[in-house]
Design a protein around this nucleic acid. Structure first.
Lengths: 247, 247
DNA sequence: TAGGATAGCTACTAATGAGTATGATCCATG
DNA sequence: CATGGATCATACTCATTAGTAGCTATCCTA
């Protein structure tokens, strides 16, 4: 209940693909670069959020203090508060940064120009990459217990949107025949859960890229465990088509 | 580093199926039962751990204070410390209580009297139930960031044991022909991830039992997303055989 | 070149919560 | 009946940390 009078609301750019200006490198602190103060609020704000995501990744939300984040940027704590209203918002911004690419992937997969299975594969590929990204941990682990009622509801609605999107594609696939008929709800839970869990082990083992993991998972999902009696018994060689899923 | 001189080490019964003595009901506090002090350390200790698991479920580890747990049991905080050396150990005990049934399921699935796929199904069924149990959240979410190095290593080894068990069954299934050939590592990640994630949504939606969820997930895993060209195109009606997975 | 807006720091407050010192009470046993 | 161990409560200590008050310095603009 900090009654912050600061107006940090505007400036939504959803720090998608690194910063815009090449003056400040995405790695490291924009403050560190030069002694004179760079007057680019947006770049610095994104740097704060990135630093927060990085710290949350390593130590967890509750074990990270705002002093830690400030120290990583080589500034003081009030400077962090100058760009962000509180710690909770920091977590929220990380969550949004993680989930946003998934939402755009869904928007691109709406038109039924391809069979639903192919569209689902593409979406799940982006999903897996998002979970393996620097914001994946925050996206997956942002818990309503740590957030105010309003933010919790906001996050829950965004998550539900993703869930409903997967279910819809599963239903469409059952209709156009490209997906084995299944219970959409449970199947969506299983798919999302498997992908979400990537965030838990990816930090420890980064031997594969996010795209590779996503491709491997999709192969598992497609084939299933039961042995195929007919043709197509072998998996399609971990398809390296790189369907727009660069990393 | 609280250099606790208390000797709370012995008395490992791994609170499996509720308490043994029927004097104290499993629900509620053994203290509440009678005014005179019941002299059964083990029952009370398990009640403390259950109360901790319950609180961690609802509010998360970091948002739960030991005062909360003590209040739920209607005792004071030093009483809790009389049965448990610190908060970290409380989380650890919840983790062990959650993972122990899975370990026994694996031990029972070792002898190759049945095809590996059937054994894997049974194990995954128990796995799903464990995740949906009162200790599931703690088991799944016990993070090394919140634990000392020793406990973190212990938990990691237990988790690895489960992981290796799944991989072994997948390999055996590929050999005896009961499971579609796959990458054991990635497939095990996908299976465990999907099941682990149950803990995230089960609290909010308990419309199904753990056994039902496990059965539904297994159906998804078995069939896969690709449509089956040959026979057995329909899923086996969410088999209600209740293969020893009561709840 | 004055004045306002921007950007930042030092040094605090206030609350929370883990863990403990100390002592009271109960019970079994000799 | 006393005595020692088991059990539990009151009332602390102490460290951490979110968030702020108040001040300083810099830049842009009129």
């Amino acid at each position: 209940m900090p009654t912050s009078r600061r107006k940090t609301a505007p400036g939504r750019t959803h720090l998608a693909a690194s910063a815009a200006t090449p003056t400040a490198t995405a790695r490291g602190s924009p403050w560190r670069a030069s002694r004179e103060r760079v007057r680019d609020r947006q770049v610095k704000r994104e740097a704060v959020i990135r630093a927060a995501a990085h710290a949350f990744n390593r130590k967890g939300y509750h074990n990270t203090s705002l002093d830690d984040i400030a120290a990583a940027l080589e500034v003081s704590k009030p400077t962090v508060y100058y760009y962000v209203s509180n710690k909770e918002q920091l977590l929220f911004e990380c969550f949004v940064a993680g989930i946003e690419p998934i939402r755009t992937a869904f928007r691109n997969a709406r038109s039924p120009k391809a069979p639903a299975r192919e569209r689902l594969k593409t979406v799940l590929g982006h999903y897996g990459q998002a979970v393996a990204s620097e914001f994946g941990w925050c996206m997956v682990r942002a818990e309503d217990q740590d957030l105010s009622a309003a933010m919790s509801a906001h996050i829950k609605s965004l998550k539900s949107e993703i869930d409903q999107g997967i279910r819809r594609l599963l239903r469409e696939g059952a209709q156009d025949g490209s997906i084995h008929p299944c219970d959409p709800k449970m199947t969506a839970f299983a798919l999302a859960g498997a992908l979400n869990w990537i965030a838990h082990w990816y930090r420890e083992n980064q031997s594969m890229t996010g795209a590779e993991i996503a491709a491997a998972f999709i192969t598992v999902f497609e084939n299933g465990l039961n042995p195929r009696t007919g043709a197509a018994a072998h998996r399609p060689a971990a398809n390296r088509t790189t369907n727009g899923l660069e990393r």
